[in-house]
C-alpha cells in the first residue's frame, strides 16, 4: 500500500510544516511583519529541548518548557527589536530579522558546533501502532494528532474567542481599536510571543523530520515562508491546507520520483503563487 504510506507520511510532514508555519502566519500574516527570524525561533526551541532532554528531563516536559521559554524570548524580542519595525518598510523588516537570524546562527554554532544536534524521541513514540489495515510509526500519528488538535484550538482562539476578535480588530485598525479600549501594544506582544512559541513547539516535535543544526534557521525558512505565502498571508485555514498539500506533494515526489522531487515541489509553489498571487484562501479583510 504505497499510496497510503505517501498520504500518511505527507500528512505527518505537512503537520510539522503547519505547526511551525502557523506561528509565521500570526506574526507575518496578521501582524504584517516580514519575520525572517521565524526559523531561528523554531531552532532555539529545538536546541533548548535537546539540552533539557540531555539533562534528563522527559521529552514532553522539555517540549513544554522550550515552548514557554521561546515564548518569553519572543516577547522580549518583540519589545526590543520588532516594535521599532512596525512603521518601517518591508525591506527594513527583512534586513533586521535576517540580521537577528545571523546572530542566532553564529551564537548556536559557537556554543554547540556545526553538527546535527540529536533530540531523541521518547519510548512512547518510538514504536508502531496498528491502524487497522497496517501498522504505522507512532511518532507520525502523534504529529498528525497534534497538528489537528492545534488547528482546532487556533480556529477556536482566533475565530471564536474575544481575544481573537480583539486581535483582528487591532490588526485591521489599530487606532480605532485603541479608541474602544483595546491595549494594542500588549496584544501585539502577547501574540508575537505566541507565534514564537508555536515555532519552538514545532521545532521540537518536528526535530526528527527537520534535523536540528545551526543553519536550520535559513535552510527551512524558505519552506515556512512558502507555506504562508501559498496559503494566503494571514489565513490559518489557508496555511493548514497549504502545509498539507505541500507536505503530500513533497513526500510523494520523494517516493515516486526521487530525482525530480525538488522540481516538483518548487514548480508547484511557483504555479500556485502565479495562479493565486494572494494564496489559496486570500484574507477577507485584505483591501
Amino acid at each position: 500500500m504505497i499510496d497510503a504510506t505517501i498520504l500518511l507520511d505527507g500528512l505527518a510532514y505537512g503537520m510539522v510544516l503547519f505547526i511551525i508555519s502557523v506561528g509565521l502566519t500570526v506574526t507575518m500574516g496578521l501582524m504584517r511583519v516580514v519575520n525572517l527570524a521565524h526559523g531561528a525561533f523554531a531552532m532555539i526551541g529545538g536546541y533548548v529541548a535537546a539540552m533539557l532532554v540531555g539533562a534528563g528531563v522527559s521529552f514532553f516536559a522539555a517540549a513544554g518548557l522550550a515552548t514557554l521559554l521561546v515564548g518569553m524570548i519572543g516577547a522580549v524580542a518583540e519589545l526590543a527589536v520588532y516594535r521599532p519595525l512596525y512603521r518601517k518598510g518591508e525591506l527594513a523588516q527583512a534586513l533586521m530579522t535576517f540580521g537577528l537570524t545571523f546572530v542566532v546562527i553564529a551564537s548556536l554554532t559557537s556554543g554547540f558546533g556545526t553538527g546535527i544536534k540529536t533530540l531523541p524521541l521518547p519510548a512512547a513514540l518510538g514504536g508502531v501502532v496498528d491502524i487497522g489495515f497496517r501498522t504505522y510509526p507512532a511518532y507520525r500519528l502523534f504529529l498528525v494528532a497534534v497538528g489537528l488538535g492545534l488547528a482546532l484550538l487556533l480556529w477556536l482562539l482566533i475565530d471564536r474567542s474575544a481575544y481573537g476578535a480583539r486581535l483582528r480588530a487591532a490588526v485591521d485598525n489599530p487606532r480605532m481599536a485603541r479608541a474602544v479600549g483595546i491595549d494594542v501594544n500588549l496584544l501585539f506582544t502577547v501574540t508575537f510571543a505566541g507565534g514564537c512559541a508555536l515555532a519552538a513547539f514545532g521545532g521540537v516535535i518536528g526535530a526528527a523530520l527537520l534535523p536540528l543544526e545551526p543553519f536550520y534557521a535559513l535552510r527551512y525558512l524558505v519552506l515556512f515562508l512558502v507555506v504562508v505565502g501559498v496559503g494566503g498571508i494571514g489565513n490559518f485555514k489557508g496555511s493548514f491546507l497549504a502545509a498539507i498539500l505541500l507536505g503530500v506533494i513533497d513526500t510523494g515526489g520523494k517516493y515516486l520520483m526521487p530525482q525530480a522531487a525538488a522540481y516538483l515541489f518548487y514548480g508547484a509553489v511557483l504555479a500556485l503563487l502565479l495562479l493565486r498571487p494572494n494564496g489559496l484562501m486570500p484574507a477577507k479583510s485584505a483591501t
Partner: peptide, 9 residues
C-alpha cells in the same frame, strides 16, 4: 556571521 548580523541590525 555574528558581526555582520549585528551590523545589519
Amino acid at each position: 556571521m555574528f558581526v555582520i548580523g549585528l551590523l545589519l541590525m
